[in-house]
């Protein structure tokens, strides 16, 4: 029971972190048609910047400064890179962001080195928030939940309650029309791209010390975020949110579940004992294939529901 509760909370924390990354990615994609491969790289930069800034000014200033720097970096990438490449079509854009991944990767390694950073949870948040059946829930995870919920609310309010949000929503469906009505659509694109990078940077700040800040973190996070975007459905923030939480919970549960598939078959009265490949596969504990589950689910959803959970289009 305590495992279920704690895993659920941990899954929620991880899911919200995923959502912070995936929401930016899905907004950028559905509006600009750009699949930004470098999105997780911005997440990594956020973590590294947060580490450096926090050494000088402390964690809480870093929580604000690092995401803003990531947002500015995003704006620069959009204005000086994507906008120019845009005329040459989507393949060029794809290759451009793909190239960025390597540049950022090398840049990070050259600046900060290959070893993991000593980016730690700030002392003030380093205590158990509460204890259930002897299992601790760290205060920092509670803090992560708070930050990500706050960000979710802020993004929602921005999109639904402000004029710029209205223009963003309009440009999502008919960018040309929004432009003919006198709205500066390229600027809206820059704002969305920078906003997505700001969110990714923030995810890096609070995720960098939750996981490890090291040069492989973008590679580790990138694929999962893509899975979330595909699973939730392109162009749907609500779908993206559900997918993030589902992925977060599944991945956390998979790690702690000690069963294998064969254990699920037993109650049905099926027993497999023969010594063959099938038995071998069935006896692998779920915990060991946990990391595979999201990708297996992505394949299933692509096969049976290509537009994703709540997607608005089939691309």
């Amino acid at each position: 029971m305590e495992i279920v509760l704690i895993s659920l909370l941990n899954g929620l924390v991880y899911g919200m972190l995923l959502f912070m990354l995936a929401s930016g990615l899905t907004l950028i994609f559905s509006m600009m048609g750009v699949l930004n491969f470098a999105h997780a790289s911005i997440y990594m930069i956020g973590a590294y910047l947060a580490f450096t800034v926090s050494q000088v000014l402390g964690f809480f200033p870093a929580l604000i400064i690092a995401p803003i720097l990531c947002g500015l970096l995003g704006a620069a990438i959009e204005i000086y890179g994507l906008r120019r490449v845009h005329h040459n079509g989507h393949i060029a854009e794809l290759l451009f962001t793909f190239g960025l991944v390597f540049i950022i990767q090398r840049g990070v390694q050259m600046t900060w080195g290959m070893l993991p950073m000593a980016y730690r949870v700030p002392a003030i948040l380093d205590f158990p928030l509460f204890t259930v059946y002897g299992a601790n829930f760290p205060a920092y995870r509670g803090f992560m939940l708070l930050i990500s919920a706050g960000m979710l609310l802020a993004t929602w309010l921005l999109l639904k309650k402000t004029r710029i949000g209205l223009i963003i929503q309009a440009a999502l469906t008919h960018p040309q029309m929004a432009s003919s009505l006198g709205h500066n659509v390229p600027m809206v694109f820059t704002i969305v791209f920078a906003g997505g990078c700001l969110l990714a940077g923030l995810a890096g700040v609070i995720g960098g010390n939750y996981q490890t800040t090291e040069p492989g973190m973008a590679e580790a996070m990138g694929p999962i975020v893509f899975v979330v975007v595909v699973f939730g459905g392109l162009g749907s923030l609500a779908g993206c949110f559900i997918a993030s939480i589902v992925m977060g919970v599944i991945q956390t549960f998979a790690v702690v579940i000690d069963y294998s598939f064969i254990d699920f078959l037993k109650p049905l009265g099926i027993s497999v004992t023969a010594d063959n490949l099938l038995t071998e596969i069935l006896t692998v504990p779920v915990a060991r294939i946990g990391a595979l589950l999201p990708f297996a689910m992505m394949i299933l959803i692509l096969l049976f529901r290509p537009r994703g959970l709540l997607g608005t289009r089939d691309t």
């Binding site: 209205l166 929503q169 309009a170 469906t173 008919h174 040309q176 029309m177 432009s179 003919s180 009505l181 006198g182 709205h183 500066n184 659509v185 390229p186």
Partner: peptide, 23 residues
């Protein structure tokens, strides 16, 4: 750019309407 043309005072109603369906 279209938005600047529009801001000069020219309005455009496209044939395919292009209403914003979710709004």
């Amino acid at each position: 750019r279209s938005d600047l043309v529009a801001r000069c005072g020219i309005g455009y109603v496209p044939e395919d309407r292009q209403i914003f369906p979710t709004l």
